[in-house]
Amino acid sequence: MKKTEVCLTVNGVTHHLGLSPNALLLNVLRDELGLTGAKYGCGTGQCGLCTVLVNGRAVLSCLTLAVAVDGADIVTVEGLSRPDGSLDPIQEAFLDHGAIQCGYCTPAMVITAKDLLNRNAHPTEPEIREQIEGTLCRCTGYLSIVRAIKSCGDRAGAPAPRPSPMKKSR
């Protein structure tokens, strides 16, 4: 199959790649560039584990043709931490709120959260839940992830306390 040159700037580094039209962005990132943070989970756009930022917007890389994003600026989870190794606040929040279990959805969750926080510095819980509804996690039940994202908006340095005793009845 004819290969075309595709230019992708990934985490600040520009790559010129010869790619077939049927190359999916997810596989290019993983197989050509060795960035395995974005994961295959279903391939049909249902689980969100392949989420990356394309020109600042969270998209599904398993349903994105690499040729279609020629010239785009792409950020994967590997690009969130700074060159000195220091982490993005959302990554710190995931660490502080026990929002990580097996870790397989974590890169996508972090990117999905980043997309929200870029637009909305103080999201409400419903906004957070709506944002991550398309990124599936089988381990956590989502609550710790929601708390982590919320804490970034709250700009709380310290971990939020565990759930406070609820209202007694309604």
Binding site: E133, G141, Y142, L143, M166
Partner: peptide, 12 residues
């Protein structure tokens, strides 16, 4: 998905 779980304040 995250939408189906009770709110964080409603889970102890």
């Amino acid at each position: 998905t995250a939408l189906e779980m009770p709110l964080t304040e409603d889970v102890a």
